[in-house]
Design a protein around this nucleic acid. Structure first.
Lengths: 203, 203
DNA sequence: TATAAATTTGACCGTTTGGTTAAACCTGTT
DNA sequence: AACAGGTTTAACCAAACGGTCAAATTTATA
Protein backbone atom coordinates (compact mmCIF):
# COMPACT_ATOMS: atom_id res chain seq x y z
CA UNK A 1 0.00 0.00 0.00
CA UNK A 2 2.53 2.55 1.16
CA UNK A 3 4.99 0.99 -1.28
CA UNK A 4 2.65 1.20 -4.24
CA UNK A 5 1.29 4.51 -3.00
CA UNK A 6 4.64 6.17 -3.15
CA UNK A 7 5.28 4.64 -6.51
CA UNK A 8 2.09 6.01 -8.06
CA UNK A 9 2.59 9.44 -6.58
CA UNK A 10 6.16 9.48 -7.82
CA UNK A 11 5.17 8.40 -11.31
CA UNK A 12 2.58 11.17 -11.42
CA UNK A 13 5.07 13.69 -10.08
CA UNK A 14 7.65 12.78 -12.70
CA UNK A 15 5.09 12.91 -15.50
CA UNK A 16 3.92 16.29 -14.23
CA UNK A 17 7.49 17.57 -14.02
CA UNK A 18 8.13 16.51 -17.60
CA UNK A 19 4.95 18.13 -18.88
CA UNK A 20 5.41 21.39 -16.96
CA UNK A 21 9.06 21.68 -18.03
CA UNK A 22 8.06 21.20 -21.65
CA UNK A 23 4.97 23.36 -21.82
CA UNK A 24 4.90 25.58 -18.74
CA UNK A 25 1.93 26.08 -16.42
CA UNK A 26 -0.35 27.52 -19.10
CA UNK A 27 0.57 25.04 -21.83
CA UNK A 28 0.52 21.92 -19.66
CA UNK A 29 -2.56 19.66 -19.91
CA UNK A 30 -3.82 17.41 -17.13
CA UNK A 31 -4.76 14.77 -19.70
CA UNK A 32 -1.19 14.74 -21.05
CA UNK A 33 0.18 14.22 -17.56
CA UNK A 34 -2.26 11.37 -16.98
CA UNK A 35 -1.26 9.79 -20.29
CA UNK A 36 2.46 10.10 -19.54
CA UNK A 37 1.89 8.52 -16.12
CA UNK A 38 -0.28 5.80 -17.67
CA UNK A 39 -3.19 6.44 -15.33
CA UNK A 40 -6.64 7.96 -15.21
CA UNK A 41 -7.02 11.72 -15.14
CA UNK A 42 -9.15 11.56 -11.99
CA UNK A 43 -6.22 10.01 -10.15
CA UNK A 44 -4.22 13.17 -10.61
CA UNK A 45 -6.78 15.02 -8.55
CA UNK A 46 -6.79 12.27 -5.96
CA UNK A 47 -3.09 12.89 -5.20
CA UNK A 48 -2.79 16.57 -6.09
CA UNK A 49 -6.14 18.27 -5.67
CA UNK A 50 -5.74 20.88 -8.40
CA UNK A 51 -3.49 21.68 -11.34
CA UNK A 52 -2.22 24.71 -9.44
CA UNK A 53 -1.23 22.67 -6.38
CA UNK A 54 0.47 20.12 -8.61
CA UNK A 55 2.42 22.84 -10.37
CA UNK A 56 3.49 24.36 -7.06
CA UNK A 57 4.80 20.99 -5.89
CA UNK A 58 6.84 20.62 -9.07
CA UNK A 59 8.04 24.22 -9.03
CA UNK A 60 9.20 24.12 -5.42
CA UNK A 61 11.00 20.82 -5.90
CA UNK A 62 12.90 22.29 -8.83
CA UNK A 63 13.66 25.53 -6.99
CA UNK A 64 14.97 23.54 -4.03
CA UNK A 65 17.09 21.40 -6.35
CA UNK A 66 18.67 24.51 -7.82
CA UNK A 67 19.25 26.33 -4.55
CA UNK A 68 20.81 23.28 -2.88
CA UNK A 69 23.34 23.20 -5.70
CA UNK A 70 24.53 26.69 -4.86
CA UNK A 71 25.20 26.09 -1.19
CA UNK A 72 28.58 24.30 -1.59
CA UNK A 73 30.05 27.39 -3.24
CA UNK A 74 29.70 29.24 0.03
CA UNK A 75 31.11 26.43 2.16
CA UNK A 76 34.23 25.54 0.22
CA UNK A 77 37.36 27.04 1.64
CA UNK A 78 38.86 28.06 -1.64
CA UNK A 79 40.39 31.24 -2.96
CA UNK A 80 38.13 33.51 -4.95
CA UNK A 81 39.63 32.35 -8.24
CA UNK A 82 39.37 28.70 -7.27
CA UNK A 83 35.78 29.31 -6.23
CA UNK A 84 34.93 30.83 -9.60
CA UNK A 85 36.42 27.82 -11.39
CA UNK A 86 34.63 25.46 -9.04
CA UNK A 87 31.33 27.25 -9.60
CA UNK A 88 31.41 27.13 -13.39
CA UNK A 89 32.52 23.50 -13.51
CA UNK A 90 29.75 22.43 -11.13
CA UNK A 91 27.04 24.76 -12.36
CA UNK A 92 27.38 24.17 -16.08
CA UNK A 93 27.61 20.43 -15.47
CA UNK A 94 24.42 20.64 -13.44
CA UNK A 95 22.69 22.54 -16.23
CA UNK A 96 23.95 20.04 -18.80
CA UNK A 97 22.07 17.41 -16.80
CA UNK A 98 19.01 19.66 -16.40
CA UNK A 99 18.96 21.81 -19.53
CA UNK A 100 15.28 22.74 -19.37
CA UNK A 101 15.43 24.28 -15.89
CA UNK A 102 16.60 27.83 -16.70
CA UNK A 103 13.98 28.56 -19.34
CA UNK A 104 11.28 27.04 -17.16
CA UNK A 105 12.20 29.00 -14.04
CA UNK A 106 12.69 32.32 -15.83
CA UNK A 107 9.39 32.03 -17.66
CA UNK A 108 7.28 31.00 -14.69
CA UNK A 109 8.77 33.69 -12.47
CA UNK A 110 8.02 36.38 -15.00
CA UNK A 111 4.54 34.97 -15.36
CA UNK A 112 3.89 34.83 -11.63
CA UNK A 113 6.40 36.73 -9.45
CA UNK A 114 4.54 35.82 -6.27
CA UNK A 115 5.73 32.23 -6.55
CA UNK A 116 9.36 33.33 -6.33
CA UNK A 117 8.72 35.37 -3.22
CA UNK A 118 7.72 32.25 -1.29
CA UNK A 119 10.84 30.36 -2.36
CA UNK A 120 13.14 33.30 -1.72
CA UNK A 121 11.66 34.00 1.69
CA UNK A 122 13.06 30.68 2.95
CA UNK A 123 16.68 31.68 2.35
CA UNK A 124 18.64 34.37 4.17
CA UNK A 125 20.51 36.17 1.45
CA UNK A 126 22.21 38.54 3.87
CA UNK A 127 23.99 35.70 5.64
CA UNK A 128 25.31 34.34 2.35
CA UNK A 129 26.35 37.83 1.41
CA UNK A 130 28.25 38.41 4.64
CA UNK A 131 29.80 34.95 4.61
CA UNK A 132 31.17 35.57 1.16
CA UNK A 133 32.46 38.99 2.15
CA UNK A 134 34.23 37.64 5.24
CA UNK A 135 35.78 34.69 3.42
CA UNK A 136 37.32 36.94 0.79
CA UNK A 137 37.78 40.28 2.49
CA UNK A 138 41.46 40.59 1.60
CA UNK A 139 40.93 39.36 -1.96
CA UNK A 140 38.15 41.88 -2.56
CA UNK A 141 40.57 44.64 -1.64
CA UNK A 142 43.32 43.16 -3.80
CA UNK A 143 40.98 42.90 -6.82
CA UNK A 144 39.58 46.36 -6.12
CA UNK A 145 36.08 44.95 -5.86
CA UNK A 146 34.00 47.58 -4.09
CA UNK A 147 30.74 46.78 -2.36
CA UNK A 148 28.82 48.66 -5.04
CA UNK A 149 30.25 46.50 -7.81
CA UNK A 150 29.28 43.18 -6.26
CA UNK A 151 25.74 43.04 -7.70
CA UNK A 152 27.13 43.76 -11.17
CA UNK A 153 29.76 41.04 -10.79
CA UNK A 154 27.47 38.41 -9.28
CA UNK A 155 24.79 38.84 -11.92
CA UNK A 156 27.43 38.77 -14.65
CA UNK A 157 28.84 35.51 -13.34
CA UNK A 158 25.38 33.96 -13.28
CA UNK A 159 24.47 35.31 -16.71
CA UNK A 160 27.47 33.66 -18.36
CA UNK A 161 26.49 30.15 -17.27
CA UNK A 162 22.70 30.38 -17.31
CA UNK A 163 22.05 32.38 -20.46
CA UNK A 164 23.23 29.73 -22.95
CA UNK A 165 20.61 27.40 -21.52
CA UNK A 166 17.87 30.02 -21.36
CA UNK A 167 18.58 30.95 -24.97
CA UNK A 168 19.38 27.40 -25.99
CA UNK A 169 16.92 27.39 -28.88
CA UNK A 170 18.56 30.43 -30.47
CA UNK A 171 22.10 29.25 -29.86
CA UNK A 172 21.54 25.79 -31.27
CA UNK A 173 19.97 27.22 -34.40
CA UNK A 174 22.77 29.75 -34.91
CA UNK A 175 25.47 27.19 -34.16
CA UNK A 176 23.97 24.78 -36.66
CA UNK A 177 24.36 27.44 -39.35
CA UNK A 178 27.97 27.99 -38.33
CA UNK A 179 28.73 24.29 -38.01
CA UNK A 180 29.50 24.53 -34.31
CA UNK A 181 28.58 21.82 -31.77
CA UNK A 182 26.48 23.13 -28.90
CA UNK A 183 27.68 20.31 -26.65
CA UNK A 184 31.33 21.10 -27.30
CA UNK A 185 30.58 24.78 -26.76
CA UNK A 186 29.21 23.94 -23.30
CA UNK A 187 32.23 21.80 -22.39
CA UNK A 188 34.59 24.58 -23.41
CA UNK A 189 32.50 27.12 -21.57
CA UNK A 190 33.32 25.68 -18.14
CA UNK A 191 36.92 26.82 -18.46
CA UNK A 192 36.34 29.80 -20.75
CA UNK A 193 33.84 31.39 -18.38
CA UNK A 194 36.18 31.08 -15.40
CA UNK A 195 39.14 32.48 -17.35
CA UNK A 196 37.02 35.31 -18.69
CA UNK A 197 35.67 36.41 -15.33
CA UNK A 198 38.98 36.08 -13.49
CA UNK A 199 40.78 38.13 -16.13
CA UNK A 200 38.10 40.80 -15.98
CA UNK A 201 38.39 41.01 -12.21
CA UNK A 202 42.21 41.20 -12.01
CA UNK A 203 43.66 44.66 -11.62
CA UNK B 1 -12.27 53.99 -44.67
CA UNK B 2 -8.65 53.16 -45.37
CA UNK B 3 -7.80 55.69 -42.65
CA UNK B 4 -10.09 54.07 -40.13
CA UNK B 5 -9.12 50.63 -41.42
CA UNK B 6 -5.47 51.10 -40.58
CA UNK B 7 -6.37 52.57 -37.26
CA UNK B 8 -8.50 49.62 -36.18
CA UNK B 9 -5.93 47.10 -37.35
CA UNK B 10 -3.21 48.99 -35.51
CA UNK B 11 -5.25 49.22 -32.33
CA UNK B 12 -5.83 45.48 -32.45
CA UNK B 13 -2.17 44.81 -33.18
CA UNK B 14 -1.04 46.88 -30.22
CA UNK B 15 -3.55 45.25 -27.90
CA UNK B 16 -2.41 41.84 -29.12
CA UNK B 17 1.25 42.76 -28.62
CA UNK B 18 0.54 43.83 -25.06
CA UNK B 19 -1.41 40.68 -24.25
CA UNK B 20 1.13 38.31 -25.83
CA UNK B 21 4.06 40.05 -24.14
CA UNK B 22 2.34 39.75 -20.78
CA UNK B 23 0.98 36.22 -21.00
CA UNK B 24 2.70 34.48 -23.89
CA UNK B 25 0.98 32.52 -26.64
CA UNK B 26 -0.58 29.94 -24.30
CA UNK B 27 -1.68 32.39 -21.64
CA UNK B 28 -3.06 35.05 -23.96
CA UNK B 29 -6.85 35.22 -24.40
CA UNK B 30 -8.61 36.50 -27.50
CA UNK B 31 -11.31 38.07 -25.31
CA UNK B 32 -8.65 40.04 -23.39
CA UNK B 33 -7.20 41.37 -26.62
CA UNK B 34 -10.65 42.40 -27.80
CA UNK B 35 -11.31 44.14 -24.48
CA UNK B 36 -7.97 45.97 -24.56
CA UNK B 37 -8.70 47.09 -28.14
CA UNK B 38 -12.23 48.09 -27.15
CA UNK B 39 -13.83 46.03 -29.91
CA UNK B 40 -15.79 42.86 -30.48
CA UNK B 41 -14.00 39.53 -30.36
CA UNK B 42 -15.24 38.60 -33.82
CA UNK B 43 -13.42 41.59 -35.26
CA UNK B 44 -10.10 40.05 -34.27
CA UNK B 45 -10.81 37.15 -36.58
CA UNK B 46 -11.89 39.55 -39.31
CA UNK B 47 -8.39 41.12 -39.42
CA UNK B 48 -6.26 38.18 -38.24
CA UNK B 49 -7.97 34.93 -39.11
CA UNK B 50 -6.69 32.87 -36.19
CA UNK B 51 -4.93 33.36 -32.87
CA UNK B 52 -1.89 31.63 -34.31
CA UNK B 53 -1.67 33.99 -37.30
CA UNK B 54 -2.10 36.96 -34.98
CA UNK B 55 0.68 35.71 -32.74
CA UNK B 56 2.98 35.18 -35.70
CA UNK B 57 2.39 38.76 -36.86
CA UNK B 58 3.28 40.06 -33.40
CA UNK B 59 6.26 37.74 -32.98
CA UNK B 60 7.78 38.62 -36.34
CA UNK B 61 7.33 42.34 -35.79
CA UNK B 62 9.16 42.06 -32.48
CA UNK B 63 11.91 39.88 -33.94
CA UNK B 64 12.40 42.38 -36.75
CA UNK B 65 12.52 45.23 -34.23
CA UNK B 66 15.27 43.46 -32.31
CA UNK B 67 17.33 42.42 -35.32
CA UNK B 68 17.21 45.90 -36.86
CA UNK B 69 18.72 47.23 -33.66
CA UNK B 70 21.79 45.05 -34.08
CA UNK B 71 22.65 46.13 -37.60
CA UNK B 72 24.31 49.46 -36.72
CA UNK B 73 26.93 47.64 -34.67
CA UNK B 74 28.25 46.05 -37.83
CA UNK B 75 28.20 49.27 -39.84
CA UNK B 76 29.91 51.64 -37.44
CA UNK B 77 33.54 52.21 -38.19
CA UNK B 78 34.76 52.00 -34.65
CA UNK B 79 37.53 50.15 -32.91
CA UNK B 80 36.59 46.90 -31.22
CA UNK B 81 36.61 48.53 -27.79
CA UNK B 82 34.53 51.45 -28.99
CA UNK B 83 32.14 49.04 -30.62
CA UNK B 84 31.69 47.12 -27.38
CA UNK B 85 30.92 50.35 -25.51
CA UNK B 86 28.58 51.45 -28.27
CA UNK B 87 26.79 48.12 -28.20
CA UNK B 88 26.11 48.05 -24.47
CA UNK B 89 25.00 51.67 -24.37
CA UNK B 90 22.55 51.18 -27.23
CA UNK B 91 21.42 47.67 -26.38
CA UNK B 92 20.72 48.15 -22.68
CA UNK B 93 18.94 51.43 -23.44
CA UNK B 94 16.82 49.59 -26.00
CA UNK B 95 15.98 46.91 -23.45
CA UNK B 96 15.15 49.55 -20.84
CA UNK B 97 12.53 50.82 -23.28
CA UNK B 98 11.35 47.27 -24.08
CA UNK B 99 11.94 45.30 -20.91
CA UNK B 100 9.47 42.50 -21.67
CA UNK B 101 11.07 41.48 -24.96
CA UNK B 102 13.84 39.13 -23.75
CA UNK B 103 11.64 36.94 -21.57
CA UNK B 104 8.98 36.82 -24.27
CA UNK B 105 11.37 35.86 -27.07
CA UNK B 106 13.28 33.29 -25.03
CA UNK B 107 10.12 31.62 -23.81
CA UNK B 108 8.34 31.44 -27.13
CA UNK B 109 11.42 30.14 -28.91
CA UNK B 110 11.87 27.36 -26.40
CA UNK B 111 8.18 26.58 -26.74
CA UNK B 112 8.23 26.51 -30.53
CA UNK B 113 11.71 26.44 -32.12
CA UNK B 114 10.25 26.31 -35.63
CA UNK B 115 9.18 29.95 -35.35
CA UNK B 116 12.79 31.07 -34.89
CA UNK B 117 13.95 29.17 -37.94
CA UNK B 118 11.75 31.30 -40.20
CA UNK B 119 13.04 34.54 -38.70
CA UNK B 120 16.66 33.41 -38.76
CA UNK B 121 16.46 32.15 -42.33
CA UNK B 122 15.98 35.75 -43.51
CA UNK B 123 19.37 36.91 -42.26
CA UNK B 124 22.78 35.87 -43.54
CA UNK B 125 24.82 35.28 -40.45
CA UNK B 126 27.95 34.37 -42.39
CA UNK B 127 28.12 37.80 -43.99
CA UNK B 128 27.88 39.49 -40.59
CA UNK B 129 30.49 37.11 -39.30
CA UNK B 130 32.91 37.86 -42.12
CA UNK B 131 32.27 41.59 -42.02
CA UNK B 132 33.13 41.66 -38.35
CA UNK B 133 36.24 39.58 -38.92
CA UNK B 134 37.49 41.85 -41.71
CA UNK B 135 36.80 45.05 -39.81
CA UNK B 136 38.84 43.90 -36.83
CA UNK B 137 41.37 41.46 -38.26
CA UNK B 138 44.37 43.20 -36.70
CA UNK B 139 42.63 43.73 -33.38
CA UNK B 140 41.65 40.08 -33.14
CA UNK B 141 45.32 39.17 -33.47
CA UNK B 142 46.34 41.80 -30.93
CA UNK B 143 43.76 40.56 -28.41
CA UNK B 144 44.68 36.96 -29.16
CA UNK B 145 41.07 36.19 -30.10
CA UNK B 146 41.14 32.97 -32.06
CA UNK B 147 38.34 31.93 -34.38
CA UNK B 148 37.37 29.16 -31.97
CA UNK B 149 36.83 31.59 -29.12
CA UNK B 150 34.48 33.91 -31.00
CA UNK B 151 31.26 31.99 -30.20
CA UNK B 152 32.18 31.99 -26.52
CA UNK B 153 32.90 35.70 -26.57
CA UNK B 154 29.85 36.72 -28.59
CA UNK B 155 27.44 34.73 -26.44
CA UNK B 156 29.07 36.10 -23.30
CA UNK B 157 28.65 39.67 -24.52
CA UNK B 158 24.97 39.04 -25.27
CA UNK B 159 24.40 37.23 -21.98
CA UNK B 160 25.63 40.18 -19.93
CA UNK B 161 23.09 42.62 -21.34
CA UNK B 162 20.11 40.33 -21.97
CA UNK B 163 20.14 38.15 -18.87
CA UNK B 164 19.20 40.87 -16.35
CA UNK B 165 16.03 41.44 -18.35
CA UNK B 166 15.27 37.75 -18.84
CA UNK B 167 15.73 37.19 -15.09
CA UNK B 168 14.25 40.54 -14.15
CA UNK B 169 11.74 39.03 -11.74
CA UNK B 170 14.47 37.31 -9.74
CA UNK B 171 16.82 40.27 -9.77
CA UNK B 172 14.21 42.77 -8.67
CA UNK B 173 13.18 40.54 -5.78
CA UNK B 174 16.77 39.97 -4.67
CA UNK B 175 17.69 43.63 -5.07
CA UNK B 176 14.70 44.67 -2.98
CA UNK B 177 16.02 42.54 -0.13
CA UNK B 178 19.45 44.13 -0.48
CA UNK B 179 18.06 47.64 -0.86
CA UNK B 180 19.46 48.07 -4.37
CA UNK B 181 17.65 49.95 -7.15
CA UNK B 182 17.17 47.84 -10.29
CA UNK B 183 16.99 50.97 -12.45
CA UNK B 184 20.29 52.30 -11.12
CA UNK B 185 21.80 48.85 -11.59
CA UNK B 186 20.83 48.98 -15.28
CA UNK B 187 22.25 52.46 -15.76
CA UNK B 188 25.55 51.41 -14.19
CA UNK B 189 25.57 48.25 -16.24
CA UNK B 190 26.04 50.07 -19.55
CA UNK B 191 29.55 51.08 -18.52
CA UNK B 192 30.32 48.17 -16.22
CA UNK B 193 29.58 45.59 -18.91
CA UNK B 194 31.83 47.30 -21.44
CA UNK B 195 34.66 47.67 -18.94
CA UNK B 196 34.27 44.06 -17.83
CA UNK B 197 34.36 42.58 -21.32
CA UNK B 198 37.19 44.79 -22.56
CA UNK B 199 39.33 43.93 -19.55
CA UNK B 200 38.65 40.24 -20.01
CA UNK B 201 39.68 40.43 -23.66
CA UNK B 202 42.90 42.39 -23.18
CA UNK B 203 46.07 40.35 -23.12
C1' DT C 1 -12.65 -15.41 4.24
C1' DA C 2 -15.23 -11.35 5.52
C1' DT C 3 -14.84 -6.48 6.12
C1' DA C 4 -13.28 -1.95 5.88
C1' DA C 5 -10.33 1.22 3.90
C1' DA C 6 -7.62 3.04 0.34
C1' DT C 7 -6.93 3.26 -4.61
C1' DT C 8 -8.33 3.53 -9.45
C1' DT C 9 -11.59 4.09 -13.01
C1' DG C 10 -15.20 5.63 -16.61
C1' DA C 11 -18.58 8.65 -17.20
C1' DC C 12 -19.97 13.01 -16.54
C1' DC C 13 -20.33 18.35 -15.58
C1' DG C 14 -19.95 23.34 -16.01
C1' DT C 15 -16.94 26.70 -17.86
C1' DT C 16 -13.86 28.65 -20.92
C1' DT C 17 -11.83 28.69 -25.20
C1' DG C 18 -10.99 29.91 -30.20
C1' DG C 19 -13.77 30.44 -33.86
C1' DT C 20 -18.26 31.15 -36.92
C1' DT C 21 -22.39 33.31 -38.82
C1' DA C 22 -26.00 36.13 -40.17
C1' DA C 23 -27.55 40.40 -39.54
C1' DA C 24 -26.80 45.38 -38.59
C1' DC C 25 -24.16 49.33 -39.52
C1' DC C 26 -21.41 52.62 -41.71
C1' DT C 27 -19.51 55.04 -45.84
C1' DG C 28 -18.76 56.36 -50.31
C1' DT C 29 -20.96 56.19 -55.22
C1' DT C 30 -24.44 56.75 -58.65
C1' DA D 1 -32.42 57.94 -52.31
C1' DA D 2 -30.91 53.53 -53.47
C1' DC D 3 -27.32 50.56 -53.84
C1' DA D 4 -22.88 48.09 -52.89
C1' DG D 5 -18.81 47.57 -50.36
C1' DG D 6 -16.41 46.92 -46.48
C1' DT D 7 -16.80 46.97 -41.34
C1' DT D 8 -18.68 45.77 -36.77
C1' DT D 9 -21.67 43.40 -33.77
C1' DA D 10 -24.52 40.00 -30.86
C1' DA D 11 -25.47 35.52 -30.56
C1' DC D 12 -24.02 31.19 -31.09
C1' DC D 13 -21.13 26.65 -31.57
C1' DA D 14 -18.18 22.65 -30.94
C1' DA D 15 -14.19 21.28 -28.71
C1' DA D 16 -11.13 21.28 -24.96
C1' DC D 17 -10.44 22.17 -20.43
C1' DG D 18 -10.01 21.38 -15.20
C1' DG D 19 -12.51 19.12 -12.06
C1' DT D 20 -16.16 15.81 -9.73
C1' DC D 21 -18.49 11.56 -8.39
C1' DA D 22 -20.27 7.16 -7.72
C1' DA D 23 -18.99 2.77 -8.62
C1' DA D 24 -15.48 -0.78 -9.20
C1' DT D 25 -11.16 -2.70 -7.86
C1' DT D 26 -7.30 -3.61 -5.08
C1' DT D 27 -5.11 -3.95 -0.60
C1' DA D 28 -4.65 -4.32 4.40
C1' DT D 29 -6.63 -6.24 8.67
C1' DA D 30 -9.24 -9.36 11.60
Amino acid sequence: MSENDKLTEEIIFEAATDEFLDRGMDGARMQNIADKAGINKALLHYYYRTKDKMFNAVFEKIAEKILSRFAPVFDETLTLEEKIRFFYREHITFLQDNPRLPAFILNEINRNPARLRRVLSTIDIHSFWNKLEEQHRDELVRYNITKEKIPQIMTTIAAISVFPFAARGIFEELFKKLDISFDEYLEERKEFAADFVIKALRK
